[in-house]
């Protein structure tokens, strides 16, 4: 049975037994190069669920709203299960309200890999043993893994999830194909001045569409600090400095809950390398406080607790 069929079967069981009211998963998009988030409410609709290399959205972003109308099942990849862990720990959702369908896929397609294809001619995108097969009217083309998958997937180890009710796919631990932090190391070779020049270039591109924030499961505030009209901390203009302020604050707010799902960077229409900051944050949190977002249900949220022997600015 393929992963897709298995997923449909499980979704049907969950819905017909009444265990959940809705299954959040992926459905076919308007064209075969895209899939779209769907909310499956009846067992019959479960046949609309798909699982293929285009299933990129982080569906856990819907959870805090979705659980308000009853128990939910959600399809989550390894990095996204960590988001659920964080949401539960931060009391945004209750563990018993969410059924985690953890799916370990070979990897998710990087949009840039399709650059050479006529996108309207692509009929199907599917996994093959050594990469991703793109079917067009000319036949199949296999893109090798290195080129086909997103960066986060190339460095994924598919480690055992901290929580999972249903597991689909191959959960055997795998050797990462790439070093996750290679780009952080490369960036850190820059001098302070070059770093600021780098971000000046990046942040002057930002149009403040807030797609990064909307796509992020860690950004669940009812009212974001940039939308507040009482205390205006962040200016709404799109100058590089204001954008710096916005992104810096967002990074501090998601520190310790950013699991590196990479959705902010993927959602960004201007191509700002936002996950560079997120990755550094996760390295720092690990180094200073010894925890990793989403890896265990026991760790308290990073800024919601303290230790008397935490790193100190001037140790005695």
């Amino acid at each position: 049975m393929s992963m897709e069929q298995e997923l449909r079967e499980k979704a049907k069981e969950l819905l017909s037994s009444g265990k959940v009211k809705v299954v959040i998963g992926y459905g076919e998009g308007s064209i075969p190069i895209k899939s779209t988030p769907i909310f499956v409410k009846t067992p019959e609709q479960a046949d609309c669920l798909v699982l293929n290399p285009t299933c990129t959205n982080n569906l856990t972003v819907y959870l805090p709203q979705a659980v308000k109308s009853g128990p939910v099942a959600v399809v989550a990849k390894p990095c996204e299960v960590k988001n659920i862990v964080e949401l539960v720990k931060e009391n945004q959702i209750k563990r018993e309200d969410v059924t985690v369908i953890a799916v370990s896929t070979p990897g998710i397609l990087n949009d840039a890999a399709l650059a050479e294809f006529d996108l309207l001619d692509v009929k199907k995108i599917s996994w093959k043993a050594d990469g991703v097969a793109v079917t067009t009217s000319q036949g199949d083309t296999v893109i090798p893994r290195d080129a086909a998958f997103q960066k986060k997937c190339l460095s994924c180890t598919a480690a055992q999830p901290a929580i999972a009710d249903i597991k689909i796919g191959d959960w055997a631990e795998r050797a990462p194909l790439q070093d996750k932090f290679a780009d952080v190391e490369e960036y850190e070779k820059l001098s302070a001045e070059e770093k600021r020049a780098f971000w000046a270039g990046q942040f002057s591109k930002c149009i403040r569409c807030y797609a990064c924030r909307q796509a992020c499961p860690g950004c669940y505030c009812n009212e974001c600090f940039v939308d507040k009209n009482g205390q205006i901390w962040a200016s709404k203009d799109t100058g590089a400095e204001s954008n710096w302020f916005f992104h810096m604050t967002r990074m501090m707010h998601t520190a310790g809950r950013c699991t590196g799902c990479g959705e902010c960077e993927r959602a960004c229409p201007m191509g700002i390398p936002l996950s560079l900051m997120g990755k550094k944050m996760s390295l720092l949190v690990k180094e200073l406080f010894g925890t990793q977002p989403g890896e265990s249900m026991e760790d308290a949220p990073v800024f919601g607790c303290y230790q008397t022997n935490d790193p100190d600015p001037c140790p005695e």
């Binding site: 302070a192 200073l288 001037c314």
Partner: peptide, 29 residues
């Protein structure tokens, strides 16, 4: 101050990552 210590120790490192020299920010008791 225990909470602020966590927050600012992380923030200090992050400022450095963003290209603001560590000489410019001091956090002390």
């Amino acid at each position: 101050n225990y909470y602020t210590r966590r927050r600012l120790m992380l923030f200090k490192e992050f400022l450095e990552f963003m290209g603001i020299e560590p000489e410019r920010f001091k956090f002390d008791w």
